[in-house]
Amino acid sequence: MKTPSLATLIVIIFGAVIVALLAVGAPNGRPAPQQVATNSLPPEPTSVSGPGLTLASVNVELPDDTATYPDGPHADVINANCTACHSASMALYQPPLSADAWHKEVEKMRETFKAPVAEKDVPAIVAYLTAMSAKTAAAGTAPKPDTAQ
């Protein structure tokens, strides 16, 4: 039998690795890592076509946001209550607001959007946000979210 050329060997080994990787699958059923995807043509996503247009199934990963409200009095209370539904930046990017305006916002979250915030926590949250607004007004910039893991 003729000895396979180096190129043929590489193709065979590469193919075997791809087959093995495909058989093993990606961890947690996530999409295959990029380096495999670019070399081995994973199964085409399902698609539907009409004249001049094909729609292919989509599977994306939306970025998570682990940033918390920066340190300050009652930061623990606001972090426990106000990071589940929205990023901290939503509050940090607001213009400086009065205690009364912040109270209205917190009540809107509770009453309209049904945020599970205990009534006893409301004063601490409003106090944190009002102090944050005072800092923003003085500096002209938002306090930075705490991204330390």
């Binding site: 939306l62 970025p63 990017y93 213009p95 400086p96 923003t136 500096a139 002209g140 910039t141 938002a142």
Partner: peptide, 15 residues
């Protein structure tokens, strides 16, 4: 934005 905060991050992190 008048009175701030006015600075925002530019992101390329969304699909």
């Amino acid at each position: 934005l008048p009175g701030g905060p006015s600075s925002r991050e530019i992101t390329t992190g969304f699909p």
